[in-house]
């Protein structure tokens, strides 16, 4: 489904992602973990073209993701993206947030778009908030709306960039449980997260990054029970209490 072939991404002199290769199969749930500044978010952003690596190749269903290529938008639409800070459109109510791209990108008519929007709002448990503005929602609700907004575009894979890092602790669980449901339904997911509990129970595979490189890659169970590298071990010691 997704293949990264030795990608390198620099910001000025700083090498954020250093020669990273990985493959994500359909239906797989992969968590990217590591200390801050390790390049995990940048890897995720390279997958859907928000960042363009200077070297290497990003392949979606074996088609290279290249800006200005005719297939670019189609490839991007196969991927939903959920941001740490939600990025809902503040000038529209929740329903309009969910129908905007359906109408203007997928060419759905308004009724159809609204039906689909309500379906996904129901799924994240927020159908009664359809006519509220984002400013009236809590962080957890905003993030669930953002997830629903992505799902409306029927992506084949969902990319999550620290989806719970900006939330108050009591709201983390509502977002994680929505994600867990998605996982159970067989959605392919790549998740950058600091939620080790989530990674351990939901992920099929965990990729540990440091300094822009993949240090360790393993089944989730195996990784948490018995990390091979010293760096992964010391990281886990710091974050698991």
């Amino acid at each position: 489904m997704i293949k990264l072939k030795s990608i390198t991404k620099r910001f000025n002199q700083f090498v954020a992602v250093d020669n990273v290769s990985l493959e994500i199969k359909k239906g797989e749930i992969v968590c990217l973990i590591g200390p801050s500044g390790s390049g995990k978010s940048t890897v995720l952003r390279c997958i859907n073209g928000l960042e363009v690596p200077e070297e290497g190749q990003v392949l979606i269903n074996d088609t290279p993701l290249i800006k200005d290529d005719e297939k670019y938008t189609d490839l991007k639409l196969k991927m939903g993206f959920v941001f740490q800070h939600f990025h809902l459109f503040p000038h529209m109510n929740v329903l309009d947030n969910l129908t905007l791209a359906q109408i203007h990108v997928k060419d759905r008519n308004e009724t159809e778009a609204k039906d689909i929007a309500m379906k996904y709002l129901k799924r994240v448990g927020l159908e009664e908030k359809a006519l509220e503005y984002p400013s009236k929602l809590s962080g957890g609700q905003k993030q669930r709306v953002a997830i629903a907004r992505s799902l409306c575009m029927n992506p084949e894979v969902m990319l999550f960039d620290e989806p719970t890092s900006a939330l108050d602790p009591e709201m983390v669980i509502e977002v994680l449980s929505v994600m867990q449901e998605l996982a159970q339904e067989g959605m392919t997911m790549v998740v950058v997260t600091h939620e080790m509990g989530f990674a351990r129970t939901v992920a099929d595979r965990v990729i540990f990054l440091e300094d822009g490189q993949i240090v360790e890659e393993n089944h989730a169970e195996e990784f948490f029970a018995n990390p091979k590298s010293e760096r992964a071990r010391s990281f886990l010691n710091k974050v698991m209490h």
């Binding site: 073209g49 991007k76 941001f83 990025h87 809902l88 905007l100 791209a101 990108v105």
Partner: peptide, 18 residues
């Protein structure tokens, strides 16, 4: 306007003009 608004629109497939 927050750069995130551009990024969110981009991930939803909206063109620059849209």
């Amino acid at each position: 306007i927050d750069k995130g608004q551009w990024e969110a629109a981009e991930t939803l497939g909206l063109s620059n003009f849209q």
